[in-house]
Design a protein around this nucleic acid. Structure first.
Length: 206
DNA sequence: CGGCCGATTATCT
DNA sequence: GATAATCGGCCGG
């Protein structure tokens, strides 16, 4: 049994929580089966001051879970067709979240294949924020879900230590006309050569 | 390869 | 009425 990431883990600024999430395991229990992937790309969105964040215009119906307790799921719909999955950070009242942009698939690959039949390659199933929600079966029904409760069907487990040389940082992507300095803020973290994660998995001590 | 473009609709001005 | 924390297909070099 792996350890559930506790509430405390998430009660910090998103740019601190985001890199620590790399290597942890996101699990969705569906029909008694586990769908799971190792987090290998994230972005931080921190506070109303961050002009790339949904919270930049203050609290609205859509972004309200960002203002709530840390360790809940913020799942929103965009581009008329895609769901994106975020993890809320910071204590209540401070709107912050970490967008999960890529996973490496490790459990429930058969189900993922069903959910994402159109992609031929397993490698490509979870390497994008909208692709991973589709493969993991995440959508608006799970918006606000508590990720830290024992009985939750969606949660995170401590898992891999990613070697520092595999972890990279860059500006966030897809922000359009966001003004500086927010456009260039180095708040994206990702694993280069995510395919090597399966080697790390096999080396894991029991 | 890389870059451009259309899809499709909830949300906010 | 405009925009969007994207994706996949199509085009040209």
């Amino acid at each position: 049994m792996s350890a559930l990431l506790p509430r405390k883990f998430f009660e910090e600024p998103a740019p601190l929580v985001a890199p620590r999430l790399i290597g942890s395991r996101l699990v969705h229990r569906v029909n008694g089966e586990r769908l799971a992937g190792i987090i290998c790309e994230v972005e931080a969105y921190e506070g109303e001051i961050d002009l790339a964040s949904h919270a930049r215009m203050g609290r609205t119906a859509r972004n309200s879970v960002m203002y709530g307790e840390a360790g809940h799921a913020y799942i929103y719909f965009t581009y008329g067709m895609h769901w994106l999955f975020n993890i809320v950070t910071e204590p209540e009242g401070l709107p912050s979240a970490v967008l999960v942009r890529a996973l490496y698939p490790v459990e429930g690959l058969e189900w993922m294949a069903q959910l994402r039949a159109r992609s031929a390659f397993q490698e490509g199933w979870l390497n994008g924020p909208a692709k991973l929600t589709q493969a993991m079966g995440l959508d608006g029904k799970l918006n606000g879900a508590n990720l830290c409760a024992e009985e939750s069907d969606l949660f995170l487990e401590a898992d891999l230590e990613i070697p520092a040389e595999m972890l990279h940082v860059s500006a966030r992507v897809g922000l359009g006309s966001t003004p500086e300095p927010w456009l260039s803020q180095p708040w994206r973290w990702f694993v280069e050569r995510a395919d090597l994660i399966h080697v790390l998995e096999q080396r894991k001590p029991l």
